[in-house]
C-alpha cells in the first residue's frame, strides 16, 4: 500500500473512532431525552413524589443531591487543597512524598462500593453518625479527595517558581510566599478542578446507598443528621426496584435527564471557567 493510502486509511480509522465516541454520547442523551421530555415539567422538578412514586416530582432527590454534593465539597476541598499545598510547596522531594502520591493515586482507583462499605463501617457505625447526610458526604469526600488533590497540584504546578523565588527574595516567609504569590493565582484552577471532581461524585450511587440515601423520604432534610433522597439512587429505584417498573419508566427517564443536566452543567461550567482563566493568564 502506498504511503498516501496508508496515511488516508489511518486518518479515516481514527476519525471514525472519534466520531463514534461523540456519537455514543449524543445517542445516549437523545435516548434519554426522547422518553423523558414528556415527563419534564415544572411540577416534576418541584413536587414531592406521590402515590408510591408513581406520580409527582423529584424535588427532594434534587435537593438531596445538591446538599450532599455541597457538604462533600465543604469537607473535601479544604482538605484536598491543603494536601496539595503540602505536597507541592512544603514536602521535600523524597520517598515519603512519592508514597503519599502513590497512595492518593491508588485511592482514586478504589471501587465506589468499597468506599460505601468503608463509610458504613466508619461513619455510620463506628462513629455513630448513622444513616445520614453527614455520613454520605464524608464518604463522598473521601472519594473526591484524590481528584481534588490532583487537580489542585496541577493548578499549583502552573504557578512559575519565579513567583515563589521573587517573594522569598523580598523577605517573605514560605507561608507568605505561598499565601500571597501562589495561592491567589492557583485558586481559580483549584476551584474549577474541584467542581469537575464534584460532577463525577454527584452521580455516585453505591456509596450513598450504604451511608445515607433513603429509598423514599419525601422531605427536605433540615439537618445533616437526616437521611435524604438523591437523584442517582432514585433513578436506580425507579429503574429496577419499583414494584411497577413499567409504569414509572418515564419518571426514571425524567430523573436521568435531570441528573445528567445537573452533572453536565457543573462540568461544562467548570470547563468554561477554566478555559477563560487560561486565556486570561498573563504569565
Amino acid at each position: 500500500m502506498s504511503k498516501y493510502w496508508q496515511q488516508k486509511l489511518f486518518t479515516i480509522v481514527v476519525s471514525a473512532a472519534a466520531l463514534f465516541s461523540v456519537g455514543v454520547l449524543f445517542f445516549a442523551v437523545y435516548w434519554i431525552a426522547k422518553d423523558s421530555i414528556g415527563v419534564i415539567s415544572w411540577e416534576f422538578i418541584t413536587d414531592m413524589p406521590r402515590r408510591r412514586m408513581t406520580e409527582g416530582g423529584i424535588w427532594p432527590a434534587i435537593v438531596g443531591t445538591v446538599y450532599v454534593s455541597l457538604l462533600t465539597m465543604v469537607f473535601a476541598v479544604p482538605l484536598g487543597i491543603a494536601t496539595a499545598i503540602y505536597l507541592n510547596e512544603y514536602a521535600s522531594k523524597g520517598w515519603v512524598v512519592r508514597m503519599i502520591r502513590l497512595a492518593i493515586r491508588n485511592l482514586a482507583g478504589v471501587p465506589s462500593i468499597v468506599y460505601g462499605l468503608f463509610g458504613l463501617g466508619l461513619f455510620v457505625s463506628t462513629l455513630g453518625l448513622g444513616h445520614s447526610l453527614l455520613s454520605a458526604a464524608l464518604t463522598l469526600a473521601l472519594m473526591a479527595l484524590p481528584l481534588i488533590v490532583s487537580a489542585s497540584e496541577e493548578a499549583l504546578k502552573t504557578i512559575p517558581d519565579s513567583f515563589r523565588e521573587g517573594a522569598l527574595a523580598l523577605g517573605a516567609t514560605k507561608w507568605q510566599a505561598v499565601r500571597h504569590q501562589v495561592l491567589p493565582f492557583a485558586l481559580p484552577g483549584m476551584i474549577t478542578g474541584s467542581v469537575l471532581a464534584l460532577g463525577r461524585i454527584a452521580g455516585e450511587t453505591a456509596p450513598i446507598i450504604l451511608t445515607g440515601a433513603a429509598y423514599f423520604y419525601p422531605l427536605i432534610p433540615r439537618s445533616v443528621g437526616e437521611q435524604f433522597m438523591a437523584l442517582p439512587y432514585h433513578l436506580y429505584i425507579l429503574a429496577t426496584q419499583h414494584e411497577q417498573v413499567a409504569v414509572v419508566r418515564p419518571l426514571a427517564y425524567g430523573t436521568a435527564l435531570v441528573l445528567l443536566g445537573l452533572v453536565l452543567s457543573m462540568s461544562m461550567g467548570a470547563i468554561l471557567v477554566r478555559s477563560y482563566i487560561r486565556r486570561r493568564r498573563t504569565w
Binding site: S162, F163, E165, G166, A169, L170, G171, R281, W283
Partner: peptide, 15 residues
C-alpha cells in the same frame, strides 16, 4: 533577604 535583595534572570513581576 530583605537586606540582600535579588533580581532574577527572567523578569518575574507578580501578575
Amino acid at each position: 533577604r530583605r537586606r540582600v535583595g535579588m533580581v532574577f534572570q527572567k523578569p518575574n513581576p507578580f501578575p
